[in-house]
């Protein structure tokens, strides 16, 4: 059986990741996301296209990029290189030329075969730790065929696979991938339909219905072996007791099928990513969550009947002043 090898657009490969599933993992971040979360921590992953980026802290203003650009898309503006988006064709010649890696193309094309060869390099560490590969995003399901091809190859080599999804995808695509997935990390961000639309630009009900369909697969024995739910706690947005309560009420019926619910505290480490993309970020000045608040969310989930062994909060909280 021959098939055309799938290729996909990869934003980043993160080795020895400890936070995206069990054990030590290599996490692949794919480009492109159907949601537009106002708090997005990886804004560079949203667009499904490769995109040029200038990293000021690396730049020595040598001008090599300006000279080489065939489309005249780069201009020196004071101490900065400005990218003229109307002119830039994303050819990458400036990236090749830039001596300090101050220009990079976000999004590199990999075939599934090449990618798998890169990903299996840490197989020994996966085996020792019960880890494996996580495909994340962006949204992994935006490149569902590629993700499937990668997972299929990984499974044939006995490697644990994890799919990290925001829940916005075509259900038949998910069904096709499931035979090759050991663990799904499923995001529930916001329970209120109107707020969901406001925060993410997408319909809550599609995600809810995808979740139900996934649960049905799982009941039939066709789903992933394991399932984790993740809820980002964002100040002045999802960080409401009410929100956790409603999500809990929705998922409580499936509790037996859920291995873990991670309530993830907001962090502001991506502030400068927005600056680099020339965008402003609504949450730039938002404070970190407090430990008490995170404890309260976990308590709420438990009050709603969620097994206290399964629900936990993760992430960085504000420092207590002693």
């Amino acid at each position: 059986m021959s098939e055309i090898e799938q290729s996909g657009l990869v934003l980043e490969i993160q080795r020895m990741s400890t936070e995206d599933g069990p054990g030590l993992r290599t996490t692949v971040f794919l480009k492109g996301c159907p949601l537009r979360c106002t708090w997005c921590h990886n804004p560079e992953s949203i667009s499904p296209q490769p995109r040029l980026q200038w990293i000021g802290s690396n730049c020595i203003l040598c001008g090599s990029c300006i000279d080489i650009c065939p489309d005249g898309a780069l201009v020196l503006a004071g101490e900065k290189i400005r990218i003229d988006w109307d002119q830039c064709m994303g050819c990458g010649e400036c990236v090749e030329e830039c001596p300090t890696n101050a220009l990079e193309i976000l999004g590199k094309r990999w075939t599934s075969g090449e990618l798998v060869e890169e990903l299996v390099k840490d197989a020994a560490f996966f085996e020792e730790s019960g880890g494996g590969i996580t495909v994340s995003g962006g949204e992994a399901m935006m490149q569902a065929d590629f993700t499937k091809a990668v997972f299929r190859k990984l499974k044939s080599r006995g490697i644990h696979t994890t799919l990290d999804t925001c829940g916005m995808y075509r259900p038949e695509k998910m069904e096709a991938i499931l035979p090759y997935v050991d663990l799904v990390l499923f995001d529930f961000k916001e329970s209120d339909p109107q707020l969901h639309r406001e925060y993410t630009g997408a319909e809550r009900d599609i995600i809810f219905s995808n979740f139900r369909a996934l649960m049905e697969c799982k009941e039939k024995g066709a789903g992933p072996v394991n399932l984790w739910i993740r809820t980002p706690i964002i100040p002045d947005a999802t960080a409401r007791v009410e929100n956790i309560r409603e999500i809990a009420r929705f998922i409580i019926d499936y509790q037996d099928q859920i291995d873990r619910w991670e309530i993830c505290a907001f962090n502001n480490l991506c502030k400068d990513k927005y600056a680099r993309l020339g965008q402003t970020w609504r949450f730039a000045e938002s404070p970190l969550m407090k430990k008490d608040e995170m404890d309260r969310f976990v308590r709420t989930a438990v009050e709603e009947g969620f097994d206290s062994d399964k629900v936990l909060w993760t992430g960085m909280t504000a420092q207590e002043r002693i």
Partner: peptide
């Protein structure tokens, strides 16, 4: 630097 859900 590693923080849950984010590495930089």
């Amino acid at each position: 630097v590693r923080v849950t859900g984010y590495n930089a």
